[in-house]
Design a protein around this nucleic acid. Structure first.
Lengths: 253, 253
DNA sequence: CAGTGGTCTAGACCACCTG
DNA sequence: AGGTGGTCTAGACCACTGA
């Protein structure tokens, strides 16, 4: 059959829509500008609102848009680079980092954490909750798990919880000799509590950075940090960060 | 008003559904097992198919499920750790890495890449396309941009494209004195070509690792590697990788 | 060819924010 | 109170896989 198949693989509407919108964002909008609302946009492009939303969701995932319920959709600024490698917070609680301890508890951690710490299944550990703020915006929430064995000097007679306790745990931790650390990054979705701290809805995409701190031949502490995937670019490395502007210049129409 | 508000913030159906399914996956399914189809599941839970799909999408994003059109939904194995830091491919083309060069072109790169390489806006660079395979599965697709200035010995008289050319570029690159590199990780969605190589649909969530290779005080090469976010956990660090099993044991029902 | 997940529609109501 | 994005429904058709 000599039929040449032009456009034999029609791309989905939402995909085409995303491309069109993306180009419009580059050429006709400035950072912070608000877009027309979803119902208007859908009508303008002649698609159902759900289809338009599929395109907007992708653009938000890529950090191009920011949507807030009750407010509207705005053009997002370029993602900010956030250092997570050596040099930045080589050891938890180092001065000068932008982490703010918020609270502390002494409780049995999730089984996965207990396994990594090599503690018993029912053994309680110090759990420090912190928040990382960059340029005035909360970008990450962290849970730091510290076995009692790592901070033997720490007595339970002080406040068993609260910010003061959190700082006490970090202070003790710093007295150990750091022997290094290693990290892993993976995609996740924000739990309800993390979402609240990050000013996002539950289920928002996040980059989960799991870091193991080594001292005395053991895992002295384990950090699980949850970064906003929409606004952050995590930088690793020994000599500054890669600075790739993401796309053509953004101009007003 | 003394009305205590129990359940004043009812969680969305899809969120509750996700929790229920997640627990079921832990307790009643084994890795690789196929779930009932979406229409059956939706009926079983008494929700619309779109709502059920919202829950499945989240679970897939978290690497718990794997869905394939025409086939079905299966329980995904734990994510595999993939090393992207020092030690693994300290310099592109090192022997023993699991990257496979596929092709090469000599073309003008995207503006963002040209800026990072500090090349002219219209200056063509060598562009090597590679694929990374781990345990028999394609996990990443990479574009490596190499300015002509980094490989001056390379003449254009050999094959201007193809796998042989790709290897030639990498070979020349290895002759430079590596001075380090730095990387950044961010969330993205797969372009059509990357999606095809990774056996995913366009728009699938990916982790984009941008690495700048330094030599002679300049950026000698720039790598943009696209990793499957659903199946990969990227590991960095100097002493092995963190191995966090993600959740309770998985058993058959 | 039957069955799967992927796309799309046209509605409805809800939660949240701001004036 | 009015407008925004977020959730949900009950359908329909399409693209792909495998027997």
């Amino acid at each position: 059959m000599g039929t040449t198949q032009l456009e034999s693989v029609p791309e989905p509407k939402y995909w085409h829509l995303k491309t069109v919108l993306s180009e419009a964002l580059d050429s006709e909008f400035t950072v912070g500008e608000i877009l027309p609302n979803e119902r208007d946009l859908a009508a303008r492009f002649g698609v159902a609102r759900a289809t338009l939303r599929q395109a907007l969701e992708q653009l938000e995932l890529e950090g191009r848009l920011q949507r807030r319920r009750g407010v509207g959709t705005t053009v997002a600024p370029p993602r900010m680079g956030v250092a997570v490698g050596p040099g930045q917070r080589a050891w938890p609680g180092m001065p000068g980092d932008d982490w703010q301890p918020a609270d502390c508890a002494f409780a049995v951690p999730p089984a996965a954490v207990a396994a990594a710490l090599e503690t018993g299944r029912e053994e309680a550990v110090h759990t420090v909750r912190s928040t990382r703020t960059t340029r005035g915006q909360a970008v990450a929430a962290e849970l730091l798990y510290v076995p009692q064995a790592s901070v033997p000097e720490l007595s339970a007679i002080d406040a068993p919880s609260g910010p003061a306790r959190a700082r006490a745990v970090l202070r003790e931790l710093q007295r150990l000799e750091p022997e290094g650390h290693d990290s892993a990054v993976e995609l996740g979705s924000a739990r309800a509590d993390d979402a609240k701290e990050l000013d996002r809805l539950p289920g928002a995409p996040v980059l989960v950075v799991t870091t193991r701190y080594l001292a005395g031949g053991r895992t002295a502490a384990l950090s699980v940090a949850t970064y906003r995937a929409d606004t952050c670019r995590l930088t690793f490395g020994d000599s500054g960060s890669v600075r790739i502007e993401d796309g053509p210049e953004r101009r007003a129409s």
